[in-house]
Design a protein around this nucleic acid. Structure first.
Length: 419
RNA sequence: GUGGGUGUAGCUCAGUCCGGUUAGAGCGCCAGGUUGUGGCCCUGGAGGCCGGGGGUUCAAGUCCCCUCACUCACCCCA
C-alpha cells in the first residue's frame, strides 16, 4: 500500500470515468439552459451559520457537518448541499426575480462511507427564487425527469408529496407525535429517538417493528391548509397534463426540514434500496427569509451524480465517451519529425498523439494500436530522407506512402474533414 | 455513530482452516521471436516491508491482540 491514499469517503475519478462524469454535467446543462437556467458557482465553504438554517432536527446539520475553524477564528463549514448557498447568494446580491440558476459541484457530509455514499459527493441541480406558482414546481420537476429520460434511464420513479405550510407541518408533527406516543411499546428504539427530534422522520423508518405504527399513522393529506391543498392539486394536475408519471406518496418526508408544500424524490428501481435515492427536491418558501432576506419562495432539486451514474451502470446506458485520438504518429528517426507532424495536424483540427523515448518501431506501433487511433502515420529513415510518410489504416492494415505535404489532404480523404 | 466482511504484484484473485526452505496464477506492462509495421501466438523479464504495529513460536502471509484502510448493512441521505 502506498503511503498516501485518498481520505475516507473520497476517491479519484480516473479516465475514462471522469469523461463520463463531465458528459453527464454537459447533458444536464443541455436540458436546463434552454429553459432559462444559468450557471452559478458558489464557494465550497461558508459561514457555518448559513448551513445551520437547514434545520436543527436534521442529521445533515447535527452530525454530518464538515465544519472547522479557519486561521482567522471564523467558524466555517464545507457545504453539505447547494440550496442554502444559493439562497445566501440571493440575499447577498438581490438579483431580479425569478432567479433561475443551475449548478454542478461537490458537497461534503461527514458520514460513514458506504456503497453510493461518499463524504465528498457531486450533485447537479437547479433552484428558482421568486415565484410561488405551482406550475413552476411542475417545470422544475419535469426538467429533472427529462434529464433522467435523456440519459436513457427507464427505471426512475417519481414520488411527490406536500408537507403543507409551516403551520400545517407543525400541527401534523404534533399529531404524529401523539400517534406514535401511543405505539411506543412496539416501536424500535431508534424510531423512538427520532420521534423526540423530528416526528415526521419516523415515517421514513424501514424497520419492520415500526411498520404497523406507520401504516396506521394519520396522513399529511388531512392536515393541509386550503391553500396548500390547492397548490398541490395544481402541481399534480400539471404533471399529469404534460405526461410526467408520478406517484403521490403521503409518507414522503425529506431529510432537510426547510421544505414546505411540494416535495419530491426520484428513485432508481435498478439500484439496491440503500442507494436508490438518486435525487430529490421541493419548495423551501421560508429559507430566504431565514437567511435574513425578504420573504421569498423557492423551489429546486439536487440530483446525485454518483448515484445517477450507478443507475446508468445498472441499466447499461450512458456509456463513457471514448477519448480516442484520430492519428498516431510513429517516428523512428528520433522523434522530431513526429513533433512537427503532430503540431501541424493539431493546428488543422485533427487530434494526434505519438510515442516517446525513441522506442522501437514495433513498440511504437503497439502504442499506436492501443491509442485507438484509426490511422498511423509512419516515418522511418527512408521517409524522412525523401520527405514522405506512410499512412497506415490500423483497421484493415492497408498503407500507402505519400508526400508529407499531401498529408492533410490525404487524411481528409481517409478520415473525412476534421471535426 | 453501531454491527458484519475483507486487506497478498498495477488489476482480479489463489495460498491462511491443519505455521515449515527462494510467496503463486491470470490479465496488464517491458523485451525478444519478426534487420523498419500493431492486434493473434510463443518465449523471457520487471514488478510484493503478504495494510501497519506488537505478541506467541526454533520458525508467521498463515495463530493472538491492537490499529488503519476498504467494503456491506443499520442510521441517514445524493
Amino acid at each position: 500500500m502506498p503511503e498516501f491514499q485518498t481520505s475516507p469517503g473520497t476517491r479519484d475519478i480516473l479516465p475514462p470515468d471522469a469523461a463520463r462524469w463531465r458528459a453527464l454535467t454537459g447533458e444536464f446543462a443541455a436540458v436546463v439552459e434552454p429553459a432559462g437556467y444559468r450557471a452559478i458557482v458558489p464557494p465550497m465553504f461558508e459561514d457555518l451559520g448559513v448551513f445551520l438554517r437547514l434545520g436543527e432536527a436534521t442529521d445533515v446539520v447535527t452530525k454530518e457537518m464538515y465544519d472547522f475553524e479557519d486561521k482567522g477564528g471564523r467558524r466555517v463549514a464545507l457545504r453539505p448541499e447547494h440550496t442554502a448557498s444559493v439562497c445566501r447568494a440571493f440575499v447577498q446580491h438581490r438579483p431580479v426575480e425569478p432567479w433561475k440558476v443551475w449548478y454542478s459541484g461537490p458537497n461534503f457530509r461527514y458520514e460513514k462511507p458506504q456503497a453510493g455514499r461518499y463524504r465528498q459527493f457531486d450533485q447537479v441541480g437547479i433552484e428558482v427564487l421568486g415565484p410561488d406558482d405551482p406550475l413552476l414546481d411542475v417545470e422544475v420537476i419535469s426538467l429533472a425527469w427529462d434529464f433522467f429520460v435523456g440519459l436513457g434511464l427507464r427505471g426512475v420513479e417519481l414520488r411527490v408529496n406536500s408537507l403543507g405550510d409551516a403551520g400545517d407541518r407543525q400541527r401534523y408533527a404534533d399529531e404524529l407525535a401523539r400517534h406514535f406516543g401511543g405505539h411506543r411499546a412496539e416501536m424500535s428504539a431508534a424510531a423512538l429517538e427520532t420521534l423526540e427530534r423530528n416526528p415526521l422522520r419516523v415515517l421514513d423508518s424501514k424497520r419492520p417493528e415500526d411498520a404497523a405504527a406507520i401504516v396506521s399513522a394519520p396522513s399529511m393529506r388531512d392536515h393541509l391548509s386550503r391553500a396548500a391543498v390547492e397548490h398541490f392539486a395544481a402541481v399534480t394536475a400539471g404533471l399529469a397534463e404534460i405526461g410526467v408519471p408520478h406517484r403521490i406518496d403521503d409518507r414522503l418526508v425529506r431529510g432537510l426540514d426547510y421544505y414546505r408544500r411540494t416535495t419530491f424524490e426520484f428513485v432508481a428501481t435498478a439500484l439496491p434500496g440503500a442507494q436508490d435515492a438518486i435525487g430529490g427536491g421541493g419548495r423551501y418558501d421560508g429559507l430566504v427569509a431565514d437567511l435574513g432576506g425578504p420573504e421569498t419562495p423557492g423551489v429546486g432539486f439536487a440530483l446525485g451524480v454518483d448515484r445517477t451514474l450507478l443507475a446508468c451502470d445498472a441499466e447499461g446506458c450512458f456509456a463513457a465517451p471514448d477519448g480516442e485520438v484520430e492519428v498516431f504518429v510513429v517516428d523512428t528517426t528520433g522523434g522530431s519529425v513526429a513533433m512537427h507532424i503532430t503540431r501541424e495536424l493539431r493546428r488543422i483540427g485533427r487530434s494526434a498523439d505519438r510515442a516517446w523515448d525513441a522506442r522501437s518501431m514495433k513498440a511504437q506501433m503497439k502504442a499506436a494500436d492501443r491509442s485507438g487511433a484509426r490511422v498511423a502515420v509512419i516515418v522511418g529513415s527512408d521517409e524522412a530522407a525523401g520527405g514522405t510518410c506512410i499512412v497506415r489504416n490500423l483497421g484493415d492494415s492497408q498503407q500507402t506512402t505519400i508526400a508529407r505535404s499531401d498529408l492533410p489532404a490525404h487524411l481528409d480523404a481517409v478520415l473525412g474533414s476534421p471535426a
